[in-house]
Simulated assay, not measured.
Amino acid sequence: MTQSTAFLDFQATKMLHTAQGRELLDISFRLDQGRILAIYGPSGAGKTTLLRILAGLTEAGSGHIRVGDDTWLDTTRHIHLPTRRRAIGFVFQDFALFPNLTVRQQLEYASPEKHDSSIIAELLALMELEALQHHRPALLSGGQQQRVALARAIARRPSLLLLDEPLSALDEEMRNKLQEYILKIQQRFHLTTILVSHYLPEILRLADTAIILKKGRIVSEGTPASLFAGQTPPQKNNSSFKTTGTILRIEPSANAFIVSVRCADTIIDLTLSAAEATALNLNQTVSVIFNAINPKIIP
């Protein structure tokens, strides 16, 4: 990616205080407009600090942040835009909804154009919240509250959408449903999104590109398929994980078949036997299961 086409140009340093002691966060990356970047790494690696620096909630020791044509941070020029002047939508793990506002009022409060109800109506419909729009958070389930939090973040019409493990408090079924809503939002509004997640199936399904952080540094970056294929997720009682996708290509290769599956904007190539490949069709939705040995396709 060239600097001229990068929508987000980020570089920052910050001293971290971790359970293992002081670590220097020193991160630099660029991101194209309309892409989803996943940030992955152990606790204390600097994932949430990175988001907070982007949002202006944590001060960087040094660095610069350019989003489009706007400079949000440049420590050499003493530029530090406050959070209220940064076009961000931030979704937290704990939803952070206003308890006294209805669903519709949450979105109206966030919208920069108070008299334009079109974005509010569109988001209520897109997130399937129309029947709940006059309910307060106490009457909503966890999944419903997180849909409201996502819709509220989009109502701000952000240049950047920041997601800090937004689905980690939900069960697997609800998590999968919320991933669908995130993909719908991404497709409709063409957002530039940074997602912090520990959950590899989520990263494989949603992200175009990923960064692995350790001790405040980027140790690997690339497509999720190239970074995580064949790895097992950090879950005590689960030796495999899966994501869903659409078959783009089935081609013979030597004594096997190459099957390409699109998961979000990531393409995963798998080598299958003839017997396995004959059970598959182009444009078919399948599950790709990864384990410690090799990935498999389940129709």
Rank of each mutant, 00 (worst) to 15 (best):
R262L: 11
T18D: 08
I250M: 12
N281P: 00
E276F: 01
T5N: 15
R147V: 04
L126I: 06
I182D: 02
A131W: 03
Q146K: 07
N238L: 15
K296I: 09
I258V: 15
L204F: 12
S62Y: 11
A169H: 14
L272V: 10
P112F: 10
T278C: 06
P42Q: 12
G143C: 02
K242Y: 14
L248T: 07
Q231D: 06
E251D: 12
S43E: 14
T49I: 11
E180G: 15
I185S: 01
T2W: 06
Q144M: 07
T75R: 03
I36V: 15
L191Q: 10
Q105N: 08
V196A: 05
V288G: 05
S43M: 13
F189P: 00
S111Y: 03
M1L: 07
V148T: 06
Q33H: 12
G142W: 00
P224Y: 05
A155R: 00
I203V: 15
I247H: 01
S197N: 08
D265E: 13
N291F: 10
T271V: 09
L178W: 03
P158Q: 09
P201I: 08
D171K: 04
G61K: 11
I297R: 03
M127Y: 04
D69I: 00
E172K: 13
I79H: 05
E276K: 05
F7S: 05
I27W: 01
S253Q: 14
L248W: 01
T58L: 03
Q11E: 15
F29P: 02
K177R: 15
T193F: 02
A60E: 06
G143N: 05
G245D: 00
R147E: 07
S111D: 10
I258G: 01
L170S: 09
G34D: 12
A87L: 04
L139G: 04
A155V: 07
F189S: 01
F92E: 08
Q146F: 03
R136H: 13
N237F: 15
T48I: 12
R35D: 04
R175L: 09
R66S: 13
L178K: 03
D74W: 03
G230C: 02
I267W: 05
